[in-house]
């Protein structure tokens, strides 16, 4: 029995030694990424008074340097296309822990993905290359069912989702261009934009389809910011469709006493010009500049 156990122990130790090179790979993987915003956040290398959070409607519609030019408030965009409010909470928690945390958070909301489960998700693809960071690794394990203990023992297991980047480096999509302030603006037009099908939003907002988890996440974020004295402005960005009043009312109800709310100026002619849009719900570069100037005026006045 002793010899058997001894050999098992020796095998385990040899396995850990063989795993060591993967720790070197783990350290290299973040540097191979095009979008380094999350790494900068984790490394405390973001220095901004204003932070933009949200999904693609944040990343494409809000240009921090335009706001800075008009208000002097330095900003950074941490919007990630397709991300859920859960992921935004993860980003916010780290932003509040920065040595220079933001004073203002612009939370750009999505109708209906803010509170109703859709395809928006935690953006684990952004997390996998940063699995070397403990906080990121914990999130990966929580969302995928990986064993936390095994990830701590074996770097190879920890980085398995992104190790292929060594020989297949991540490519930047044509819609994923990144500006220095974190905005992901585009001058392109989505092939899917079909003006013939746009129209008013359905009048009803199905509260019964809301996820309690997503709702609680939003409330936690607002509460946390309030406790830290961080001003939150919930932004309803331009939309080529008619805005859905019940959704706006629902957000206002949840945010009451915890956040300001800003709705885009629906009388602005630019927002009725299809040429200012990438697709029906996202502005193009010029449209984003128009909206950001509008936001700057609002922020300067408050």
């Amino acid at each position: 029995m002793r010899r058997f156990l001894g050999r098992c122990l020796l095998f385990g130790m040899v396995a850990l030694v063989v795993d060591l090179p993967f720790r070197w790979v783990m350290a290299r993987l973040p540097g191979m990424e095009y979008d380094t915003r999350l790494q900068r956040l984790l490394d405390d290398r973001i220095d901004a008074d204003l932070l933009v959070l949200g999904s693609s409607r944040a990343s494409r519609d809000v240009v921090p340097h335009v706001i800075e030019e008009r208000t002097g408030i330095k900003g950074f965009n941490l919007g990630y296309p397709g991300c859920s409010i859960e992921f935004q909470e993860f980003l916010l928690d780290h932003a509040l822990a920065l040595s220079h945390p933001p004073r203002i958070v612009l939370l750009v909301v999505d109708d209906p993905a803010l509170l109703i489960p859709t395809t928006a998700d935690f953006r684990l693809d952004r997390c996998f290359p940063l699995a070397g960071y403990d906080d990121v690794n914990k999130q990966i394990c929580a969302h995928t069912g990986k064993s936390l203990a095994l990830t701590q023992a074996f770097a190879s297991y920890r980085i398995k989702e992104s190790i292929h980047h060594l020989w297949d480096p991540p490519q930047v999509g044509i819609y994923d261009t990144l500006d220095a302030d974190g905005a992901m603006l585009t001058g392109l037009r989505s092939a899917e934009m079909d003006l013939a099908v746009f129209g008013p939003h359905p009048r009803k907002y199905p509260t019964k389809h809301e996820s309690p988890m997503l709702r609680d996440t939003l409330l936690r974020m607002l509460q946390r910011c309030k406790a830290r004295g961080v001003r939150v402005v919930i932004i309803h960005p331009p939309d080529f469709r008619e805005p859905r009043a019940p959704f706006i009312e629902r957000v206002a109800e949840l945010a009451a006493g915890k956040a300001d709310i800003y709705h885009y100026n629906s009388t602005e002619p630019a927002y009725r010009d299809p040429d200012r849009y990438f697709d029906m719900v996202h502005l193009d570069r010029e449209g984003a500049h128009v909206f950001s100037k509008e936001l700057a005026v609002y922020l300067a006045g408050r």
Partner: peptide, 20 residues
């Protein structure tokens, strides 16, 4: 023999499906 076992172990670690 141990090299073979190690190769299989690391194949499991690297190729295990992330999901349940």
């Amino acid at each position: 023999r141990w090299l073979i076992y190690l190769a299989l172990l690391f194949t499991i670690l690297l190729m295990s499906f992330t999901g349940n």
